[in-house]
Structures are given as C-alpha cells and as structure tokens.
Amino acid sequence: MSQPALYERLVFKNASVYHYLKIYLILDNDDRKINAVYFKQMIISALRDLYGEIGAAFPFDVLKFEEDTLTAVLRVYNSGLVKLWTALTLLGSYQSEPCAVHVTQVSPFLLALSGNSRELELD
C-alpha cells in the first residue's frame, strides 16, 4: 500500500472570480410563462437601460432557471456583481407588465447556495 498523504494546507483569499446569485422573479400576471432565454434577455435589457450599451457589455450566465417557480441562479464575474445586482433591483416591468426581482442569496461559492439555513421552516 502507498504511503499516507503528506499534510498540505492551502489558503485562498478572494480566489473566486465569480459571484453567484439566487433570485426569483415576481410577475404581476401569474398566467404568463417565461423561459430561460427570455429571462436572460430581460436581464440584459435591464442592464442596458441602466448602464447603456457599453456599461452593460459583460458576460453572465443563467446557470439554472425553473419555469414553474421562476427562480434562477446566476453567475457573474466579481467585477460585474454590483452592476447586475442594481439592474435586477431596478427591474420593474416585463413586456409592459409590472414585475420585480428578489435576490435571496449571494455568495462567492456556488455550493453555499445549495444550503440556505434561512429557509429552514419547521412549522
């Protein structure tokens, strides 16, 4: 059998290049259906409205979008986090109907979004 591994310790400070956001969309009209492509397009136009063509030109990913609950997980480079967050906060309408976006969790680790203790409901 091979020798047990030698002890090694690495510390990464601010090593994550991304931030992840868990959000959900509230639509005024419950019957309206929206898919991941339209959802991303909606966020891109919100960014463009707020920061203009150049300011909004940064990449982000919609890692997951659930059509029935309208929840999504986004991934964005650290440098774009504040812009994306502000655009989401100020997003107020989708196809001329009122809507809002709630940011439920933000973390530099995607894994952290899979366990949110604030969601623990025991009642």
């Binding site: 030698l6 002890y7 690495l10 994550s16």
Partner: peptide
C-alpha cells in the same frame, strides 16, 4: 466605477492529509 468592481473578502482553506495519519 472602479470601486464598484471590488468584492468583499472570502476565504477558502484546503487541507490534504490522510485519515490514517
């Protein structure tokens, strides 16, 4: 907006060892 591009600190500590150690 250079200040807006900074993010608060986060830490990740990784250790390697053996349970037999």
């Amino acid at each position: 907006f250079t200040n807006l591009e900074k993010c608060p600190r986060n830490l990740l500590v990784c250790e390697k060892s053996s349970l037999l150690n």
